[in-house]
Write a protein that binds this DNA or RNA. Structure first.
Lengths: 207, 207
DNA sequence: TGTACATCAGTGAACGCGCGTTCACTGATGTAC
DNA sequence: TGTACATCAGTGAACGCGCGTTCACTGATGTAC
């Protein structure tokens, strides 16, 4: 809509795209106003037409990275969609989302790091889509199908998020105290979540 | 041993102590060679007598923060020591260590952040004490007492570490998508770990 | 026990870089008449 | 349909700061004789 016929560019979008690309290889530390500007073919000062400063640009980029993660989760969830919701289906979808979370972190460690880097300013709008919301949707489906009780449902998002987020962080950052078999650890952690929630995992049929 | 009668100071130790103190309030971003030096009563150049550069100083400080965490875990574990190892005792010790991990992160968020900040160089020696090792000890005790099987033991450290590390990260960093009840989330996550490992939690008797 | 000397932890001044930000400006866009 | 003008996204040069690092040096320590 904004089109290709503009003053100099749809700069705001172009800057965020460039920032994501840089963050993908260099993490949040690679987000540099001057290089981002010149890399987009624009003078540093032009950035200030669209962002209050570097902190706002970083916050926006971080949010964009989280939204990319959320989209990956949504895709993974839809890939195991079924005609009618069932307990087994709901469990398989949570399993798929958990695995996708960890796989995203392993595939794009610097982008994952960027997604959760502490930012000096808050984004103007909430994440859209939101990874947290995807998780809540998964849990809601588990409740709807009767796979878990209402009471367990309150704790479920924390249990699930902590586990996959924790392993992701460990795989991405940690000066690993021991060499980690990513496949195995992923299976153990995601399987552990299902067990913790009292859901019968059907990993046997798939591994 | 090094004593108080020295050239100008037992500088290396003094610098790391000062760095930990600064990191405690400002995180790894507050680790600044010049301020650290002058804050210790020494010129910036003096730092180079003890560290190759700022990266080495940061790496050492990060390691010191991890070791502080490990010491906290060890204390927590010893606090529920029993005369003879039992299944219930082993479970309670894992529970206590898990809670202590999260409590450390909540009590000292910037120090926790420092402990796991990505470093440009690796420390010369492994962490001592090591948080990972404390976890392995807990799992070993669970195996010894027969609380969990040998097979489950291989996955247990990942399940436990991911869960507590993940919640800690979320509590420390996350621009929380929802307000989190720390007590409740801690209980849910640590309880979830015990359930995932197939251990009968005795939280009912304590909460 | 005293003296000469090697060692080495410190000083202090300076370097040079890269950064975010500012400011007066220019030139294209789009609208009122 | 043309012209005048307000708007605003851009330029380009410069500022100033804080940083890690370097270098020739100084002065205290400890050891050999």
């Amino acid at each position: 809509m904004a089109g290709d016929r503009y003053h100099h560019g749809s700069l705001r979008t172009a800057l965020v795209t460039a920032a994501l690309e840089r963050a993908r290889t260099g993490g949040p530390a690679a987000l540099n106003l001057r290089e981002l500007a010149t890399g987009t073919g624009v003078s540093p000062a032009a950035v200030y037409r669209h962002f209050a400063g570097i902190d706002a640009l970083i916050a926006t980029t971080s949010q964009a990275a989280r939204e990319a993660l959320a989209r990956t989760l949504i895709d993974a969830r839809h890939r195991v969609a079924s005609a009618r919701p069932t307990q087994a289906g709901a469990a398989r979808r949570l399993d798929a989302v958990g695995r996708a979370y960890i796989e995203f972190a392993v595939a794009e460690p610097r982008l994952f790091e960027t997604a959760f880097t502490p930012c000096a300013v808050l984004p103007d709008e909430p994440d859209d889509p939101s990874a947290w919301q995807v998780l809540l949707d998964c849990v809601a489906e588990l409740v709807d199908t009767g796979a878990i009780g209402e009471h367990a449902a309150a704790d479920a998002p924390f249990i699930a998020w902590s586990a996959v987020h924790g392993l992701s962080n460990i795989l991405v950052n940690a000066p690993a105290p021991t060499d980690i078999d990513v496949e195995r650890a992923t299976g153990a952690v995601v399987g552990g979540v299902l067990t913790a929630l009292g859901i019968h995992s059907d990993r046997r049929r798939r591994g």
